[in-house]
Each structure stands twice: as structure tokens, then as C-alpha cells.
Design a protein around this nucleic acid. Structure first.
Lengths: 198, 198, 198, 198
DNA sequence: CATGAATGAGAATTCATTCAT
DNA sequence: GATGAATGAATTCTCATTCAT
């Protein structure tokens, strides 16, 4: 019983930390890091404010945690896509995933992109996880697909694809029109299909 | 005496307002709207803090002013480009203007794009000038060029071009690499050249 | 009238800053810097808490101001004593001033000494006015008197005299017995009288 | 098995309590009571935070324990000195012990004196061990030596000697100059030698 | 007894906005 | 209109102390 309770506590504790990270990721995506209050996150995670600091020493750390939560989501997604045998299909799966989030994007933009914009204005640095790193993860994965496709300049193509995604997310958000995401997504899919395999 | 002083005062007052707008545009671009203090802007504009409120009733109004300052810059640029006879050359001029700002973009991103991201998180609404409108100005102008070029779906092409710009600005900023702006700019220029004229 | 009011405002503003300094000096002497709250000082100075920060950017600055207020008191005292023609009389005047404060010392110790002890534990440095400097002011003044008296090793005598003062203040405070200050003061006076003039 | 474990546990428990006292004495000396955190002490003593409260009901009790640890050190010292046959030599031994600690004093002052200053500002009272008591222990011991030396007014001489020690500790600390301790120590030794034996 | 986690009452600090001349 | 000063509502962060197991 004690054993069980012990592990239950550990599980609960870990769960709390996770709850905070997830809450942070969500609220920060919605309100932006600057406008998000520790109290906001605590409320959503149902954790008393003072207790937040047991898990994260500063607000900056919590924001970093939110970012790495997004990185984790990205990992999960690319992990699933890696099951597909064809790199072209993997890239198309990525685009479809983006497009499927169009309503969220219309309201709040791309989680990583908007956070990158905001965190960059801080220039605090110091924290290990910056938005740039997460974006680079994505770039690297995309680049690998293009390489497997036998494309010349896979790095440039990755920049183009990820840039297009960030750009269409921003426009979708600024104009509050999920249709933009749909249309540009379709264009990207067609573009992928037009690439010759070597 | 009063006449002269009066008009001088009016001119000075107008100058003050302008100074505030310009200062707001610059500081907000650098620090973001949230992190920028009325005092920051006042200091840069060399206007006493208490006096700011004579020209702008709230901070939100000042931020809106910063945004419309960027809109004005855009107007100036497109106005100059409109002198060119060929719409394709106008678009290429636009891209070149973007690329020429790559160092600024690496540090602070696109002024309008980053502001759009930030303001969107506020949802205060109410203010006449939102970032979406400025971006729409740009889209409309670009769209017109594509139409003059006789392209089908000029609206879609405009979204693609402006989206590409926003995306490459974001990547340039997040990765702090002006080279990205250069490379993607070149790609866009080549793309424009590849379009057939009808 | 405007002029008058204007200068009245300036005077009032200066007065407010002074009120804060004096309040800080007193409360910090009584409660110690660490236990003293900005709110404590604000209350005693009858200034709203938020307004304190208009005059002092941080609590550390306010504490430094309290210290320099004590330095000012010391200046006033030595200034008065400098009127006396005989350096020996000046030193005796200093000791008498100390002894006359014995009840305060029994309750709170020497303002500068106790603050020196406390600030030293911080090791923040950076602030221009540290307790060491104030003590050095006193040492220098005392040393000058001994020098004028023609004593050999005036620096050593100054250390001895000021050290004796700090020591008797501490004992007076720790044992809550003003009589200690009286008795040791008398001893110091006799010691001064026993010094031969050269 | 239980017996062994039981006594081992008692021993360990006693050891823990001791570790906490010693850690408290050291950290409080270095950082001051106010700036010292229960967590600081627990960390240094290698005792989990939550466990501290088993041994000390409040922070005040831990600070009191730190103080009595210093009292214990004083007891050990005077106990050793009591082995010496000549009271004058005992006093000189005391002074030499002080001087030998001059580097520590330059950084943190006299443990008992600085704690006395700080605790006095609290006025919580109630606790059995206050700094005044420890200082009185020292005074009493010194007084006894002077009495054995046949000096008139041994109480006054004790106040003078201990006061000189506290004063020179404070100056040494405030000016961060161990040389002060050396010089004043020498002076006190010479003074002791100059006292006539009755 | 042991221990990681929880709690909640402060405390310092920041700033948009307002006010009194 | 101009301006330094005032105000007060947040917000982040700290820590002694308590709790559940």
C-alpha cells in the first residue's frame, strides 16, 4: 500500500509538472508569453500559485517549458510521419497536419512561430531552450525528407517549405481566415507533387 | 506675436506628435509592444511623459500610431515603386527592398508581421487600425501587380508572395541569419521571372 | 502666484525625498534593513508606497539613503565640534555626544555600526555609499584631531577610539544597559585627559 | 535488531541535530539570520527541509541553536584557557585566539556580536537564549580573570576588554582589513602587560 | 521519524494613467 | 498645452511552516 501510494505520489507529482507545462503551452499560445500571468497558468493547471515555483524557478523557465512542450508535440508528429515509407508522403502528411490546425492558427497563429517572435524581443537568452532551436528541429527533419527524395539543395527547400508554413500561419492569423491556410496548403501539396524524384 | 507663437506652437505640436509616432514605431519594433513602456517612447521622442497623453489617450492608441507609421512607410515604398512602368519590376523592387532590410529583420523581424502577431494576442479590438489592415494594404498592392501582369489568380499569388516574405522574415529573425532573407529573396526573384506574361 | 506655487511644489518635492530619507534612517535603525519594509518607511514618511519608487529606484537605494542621512548627521556634529579651538575638547565633545545618546543606543545600537554589520552580510556592493565609508569619515576626523594634538600614531589612536565606541555601543545594546555607555564614556574622557600634548 | 537500530537511530538523530546546529551557526554567521533560509541550513547540514522541523520547531529556535553553538565554542575556548595557571596568560590567550580569527572577522565579523546586533532588532524575546547571555558569559569569565589578577574594578575592565574586541571586530569587518584586528590585539596585549599585579 | 510537496501570506517592483499647477 | 509628481492595481517571487504518506 505504501509502495503503491508512494508511486502514486510520484506519478501525481510528475503529472502536476506535466499539467503545468501543458497549461503553459496552451495559455501562452493564446495570450502570448508577456500577457500570460503565472496565475493564469496556475489556474488552468489547477495548481496554487505559490506551488508553481516548486516546479519552475521563474516565469522564464515556465515559458521555456511551454516551448519544449511544443517541441515534444512536433517530435510526436514527425515520429508518426516517420512510419510512412515515402519521404514525399511524410512531407505531405506534415502539411496536412498544419492545415488541419487552421482554425487554431486563425485564432492564435503557429505556437512556435509566435513564441519565437515574442521571445526574440526579450534577448534574455540564457535559457537552454529557445524558439530558434525548435524551429531548427523542424527544418532539420524537413531537410532530411528532401534529401531522401534526392533533391538538390535540400536545405534551401526546407527553408522554403517551413518559411511558407510560418508565413501562411501569420497571414491566416492576421486576417483571421483559415481559408488561407487551406489554399496555401494545397499549393504546397501540388508543389511537392511537381518535384521530380531522382 | 500670438499669431506667430500660435502657429509655431501648432507646428511644434504636430512635430511632437510625429516624433512620438516615429519613436513608438521604432521602439515597439525593437522591444515589442508589451515590453515597451510609455516612458521608453517618451524618452526617445524627447517628450515629457505626462505630455504624451495629450497626443494619445492611451498606450493602445500609441501602438496603433506606431502601426500606422509602418503603414505610411509602406505607402511611401509602393508609391515609389509605382513609378516603374513594368509591374514585374515593381514586384522585384519590393523584394529587393525587403532583402535590403535583412540585417534589421535578423534582429527584430518584420515590423508589421511581429506587431500583427503581438496585437492579435490582445483581442482588445476597438482600435481602428489593426495589423491585419496594414497587411491587407500590402496584399492588395501586390495583387494589383499580378493582375496587371495578366496572371490568373492574382489574389492567390499575392498571398503566396507576402506569405513567403513573412515566413522568411520570421526564420531570419528566429535563426538570426540575414542570409536566409538573401537566399529566399533570390528564389522569389527567379520565381517572378519564371512567370509567363499574358 | 504660479511662481510661488511652483517653488512650493519643488520645495514640497524635495521635502518628500527628505522625509523618506529621514524615515528610512529611523526605521532602519530601529528594525534593521532586512526587516524593514518599503511599506514601513512609506507609512512613516506618509508617502504612498508606489510613490517611493519615484524617488528611489530600489530598496537598496533607500537603505543607502538612510546611511547617507546618518553620514549627514555625523557631518553636522563634527562641523559643530570643529568650532571648538582645542582638538582635545573636540574629541571630548564627540564622546559626550555619544554618551548623550545612550538610551537610544541601548535600544538600537549605533546606527552606522549596526547598519555596517547588516550591509556587510549582503555583499551586493555596487552602491556608492557603504557603511564602511561612513565609518571611515569618522575615523578620518578623529585621526585629524589626534594629529593636531601632536600625538604619535594618530591613525592607531583613531582606530582605538572609534573601536571603543562601536564596542561599547554593541555591549550597551546587547545588555540593554545605558550605564555601560556612561561608564566607558567616562573612561575614554579620562584617557583623553591623560594624553600628553606635544 | 530493533535495539541496535534504535540506538543507531538515536545516535544518527543526535548527529542530525548537531549537524543542523553547526550548519546554522556557520551559515548564519556568514549571511546573517535574516537572509539565511531554512533551506540554506538544511542543504549545508544535508538534512531534508521537511525534516528540520522535527528537530527545531521554528526558525527562531534554529537561530537560537546557532547562538548556543557559538556559546559552546566559547566554553571550549575558555575551558582550554583555564588550564593556564596565570590569569594574565589566560586573557592573553583569549586575545590571541581572537586575533587568529582575523580573516574570518574581516569577512563576517564576530559571530556573537553580529548576531547580537541582528537579534536585538527583532525584539521577539521569548526565546531562552539571547545573544546578550552569550556575551555575558564572556564578560563573566574575563571579569574573573581580572579579579584573580587582583585588579580593582574587574567588571569595568571586562567591559573595556570585551568592548574593545567587539569594536575591533566591527571595524575589521566594515573596513575589510584584518590588519586592524592585529594592531588592536597587540595594543590590548601590551595593555594587559602594563597592568600591575596586586 | 522521514520527506517531497503544498500552502499562503507577504514583499519588491513596474507602469499605465491621472492630477495639480 | 506642458510637466513633474502621484496613485494604485497588478505581477513576480520568496519562504516559513504544514501536510500526506
Amino acid at each position: 500500500m505504501t509502495d503503491l501510494k508512494g508511486s502514486a505520489r510520484v506519478r501525481a507529482a510528475g503529472a502536476k509538472r506535466e499539467r503545468l507545462m501543458r497549461a503553459a503551452a496552451e495559455v501562452v499560445h493564446q495570450q502570448g508569453a508577456e500577457r500570460t500571468t503565472i496565475a493564469d497558468i496556475a489556474r488552468m493547471a489547477e495548481v496554487p500559485v505559490g506551488n508553481v515555483y516548486y516546479y519552475f524557478k521563474t516565469k522564464a523557465e515556465l515559458v521555456a517549458a511551454a516551448l519544449s512542450e511544443h517541441a515534444r508535440q512536433l517530435d510526436l508528429l514527425t515520429g508518426r510521419l516517420d512510419q510512412l515509407p515515402d519521404p514525399r508522403e511524410r512531407l505531405k502528411g506534415l502539411i496536412n497536419a498544419w492545415v488541419s490546425q487552421r482554425d487554431l492558427a486563425a485564432r492564435y497563429g503557429c505556437p512556435t512561430g509566435t513564441l519565437a517572435v515574442e521571445l526574440d524581443k526579450r534577448k534574455e537568452g540564457g535559457l537552454d531552450v529557445e524558439a530558434g532551436k525548435v524551429i531548427r528541429l523542424l527544418l532539420t527533419w524537413v531537410e532530411r525528407q528532401f534529401r531522401e527524395l534526392g533533391q538538390p539543395d535540400p536545405e534551401g527547400l526546407a527553408l522554403t517549405l517551413v518559411g511558407a508554413y510560418q508565413g501562411m500561419s501569420l497571414l491566416t492569423n492576421a486576417l483571421r481566415d483559415p481559408g488561407i491556410m487551406q489554399r496555401e496548403g494545397d499549393r504546397l501539396l501540388a508543389w511537392l507533387d511537381s518535384l521530380e524524384t531522382n
